[in-house]
């Protein structure tokens, strides 16, 4: 009996550790432009209620399993004014598209610059996708003369050079963060053009990590962890007592 309890608690402890790790990752990215906080959801798969499968495997009387999955909270971050002509922040559900050798990547980080060819790129040098290919600022135009409209149209000294490609996912939960501020779409679902997303030039979208929220979660995790450890040690005391009684 106590071994079962101990394994349950061990599972709980490792789940809490992962949650703690997710919180530290969020906090580390509290100032990363376009970062979306990640949260971990635990589901208790009880041996009797859950666990039935399409294959018809019967539920067994095993101890419950903790399933943890992580989600990205895609809620809007606040827009911070920078005045840089190549900073764009999105308001709405859309994503900017980056062209890479490995296919399209999606991002909310619109801190762009130009490469030596005058193309709009991000910090990793990935080209920003326009609706008609990469956006190139002609050499005769200074980047201070670049204007980006709310609809994503890019004007260089008054002449339109293209339009930012902004897409929207029916279910952004399928997106996988791959680091360097971009998401990958494993389903390759060819997202549609965004409808309600506006582009704001000269702004950056701040990280949507809220310090207070994370701190509260942090305290919760620490306390739950402590409580679980207590139960483990109490149960081991209990078994010691049992053995003592049994052996006289």
């Amino acid at each position: 009996m106590e071994t079962e309890m101990t394994t349950d608690m061990a599972a709980a402890l490792s789940a809490l550790t992962r949650q703690y790790e997710a919180i530290t990752h969020n906090l580390a990215n509290a100032n990363t432009v376009g970062y979306k906080r990640r949260l971990i959801v635990f589901t208790m798969l009880d041996g009797t209620t859950g666990g039935t499968s399409a294959a018809g495997a019967t539920a067994t009387e095993t101890s419950p399993t903790i399933v943890d999955s992580d989600f990205v909270d895609f809620s809007q971050g606040s827009l911070v004014h920078t005045g840089r002509s190549l900073d764009v922040a999105l308001h709405g559900k859309g994503f900017l598209v980056m062209e890479t050798a490995g296919g399209e990547r999606y991002t909310r980080n619109g801190v762009f610059r130009t490469n030596a060819q005058g193309q709009l790129v991000d910090a990793q040098g990935r080209t920003v996708a326009g609706e008609g290919g990469p956006l190139t600022i002609p050499p005769s135009v200074s980047i201070l003369q670049v204007q980006i409209g709310e609809d994503g149209r890019v004007l260089a000294a008054g002449t339109e050079i293209g339009k930012l490609r902004i897409v929207e996912f029916e279910d952004p939960k399928g997106l996988i963060p791959v680091g360097e501020n971009v998401y990958e779409d494993p389903a390759d679902s060819r997202p549609a053009a965004a409808t309600d997303t506006t582009v704001h030039q000269g702004f950056q979208e701040g990280s949507n990590v809220k310090a207070v929220q994370e701190l509260v979660a942090l305290i919760q995790v620490a306390r739950l962890y402590e409580a679980n450890v207590r139960i483990v040690s109490a149960s081991s005391e209990l078994s010691k007592d049992l053995i003592r009684v049994a052996l006289g």
Binding site: G51, T60, S69, D70
Partner: peptide
Amino acid sequence: AGVEAPSGFELG
């Protein structure tokens, strides 16, 4: 047994 994770688990 027979339960698929609805989403993956990536740790940052």
